[in-house]
Computed example of a mutant assay.
Amino acid sequence: MLGLGIIGWIIIGGLAGWIASKFMKTDAQQGILLNIVVGVVGGLLGGFLLAAVGVDVAGGGWFFSFFTCLAGACLLLYLVKLFTGRKSAH
């Protein structure tokens, strides 16, 4: 993911964070800036976890990076909800 540059990180992170917030039903509490942060941090988390199990994350490209960010963002939102005790809004 390092080859994408800062604009790529923002675009992929924002999109992944937004979709993850829809999956995890936290979209009502988040704005665009928090979606970007969740997506980028989720990408770091997902990349770290994949690298830890031996997956080559450096040469993945845009789609691999997006799905890594999406999975990491969902995991991050799940952990935040788990530790803060927040329930999803209906």
Rank of each mutant, 00 (worst) to 15 (best):
L4N: 01
D56I: 07
M1F: 15
W9S: 06
A89N: 06
L4M: 13
F83K: 06
V37Y: 07
G59L: 02
I32W: 15
A51K: 10
L15F: 14
C69G: 02
G59M: 09
S65L: 01
L45Q: 03
S21I: 12
G61K: 14
T68F: 01
H90D: 10
F66I: 05
G39L: 03
I11C: 02
G14E: 01
C74L: 00
F48E: 12
K25V: 11
Q30W: 04
F64E: 08
K25F: 10
G13V: 06
G61C: 10
L79E: 10
G47M: 11
Q30H: 11
A28R: 03
I36H: 02
G59K: 03
C69T: 09
F66E: 00
I32M: 15
I10R: 01
A52G: 15
A28E: 12
L15K: 03
A20D: 09
F23L: 15
F23K: 07
G17V: 01
L33A: 15
T84V: 02
A16W: 06
G85S: 04
V53Y: 08
L70E: 00
V37Q: 05
N35V: 02
S88G: 13
G46E: 04
M24F: 04
V57R: 03
I11W: 01
C69A: 15
V55E: 00
F63I: 13
I32F: 15
I19G: 06
A20P: 07
G3T: 13
K25N: 14
I7E: 04
A52W: 11
Q30R: 10
F64W: 14
M1Y: 08
A89C: 00
V55R: 05
Y78G: 04
I32Q: 08
L76W: 11
T26A: 04
V80P: 04
I10Y: 00
F48R: 12
A71S: 15
G54C: 05
G43L: 06
L70A: 09
L77T: 09
V53P: 00
G54K: 12
L2I: 10
D27E: 15
I11P: 01
L77N: 00
G39N: 06
G14F: 05
A16I: 05
I10V: 14
M1I: 08
L33Y: 14
V38H: 02
G8E: 06
I7H: 03
V37A: 12
I6L: 13
L50I: 09
W9K: 06
L70W: 08
A89W: 00
L82T: 15
G43C: 10
F67C: 14
G3I: 03
N35S: 14
G47S: 12
F83Q: 07
V40S: 03
A52E: 12
R86M: 10
G42F: 07
L33E: 11
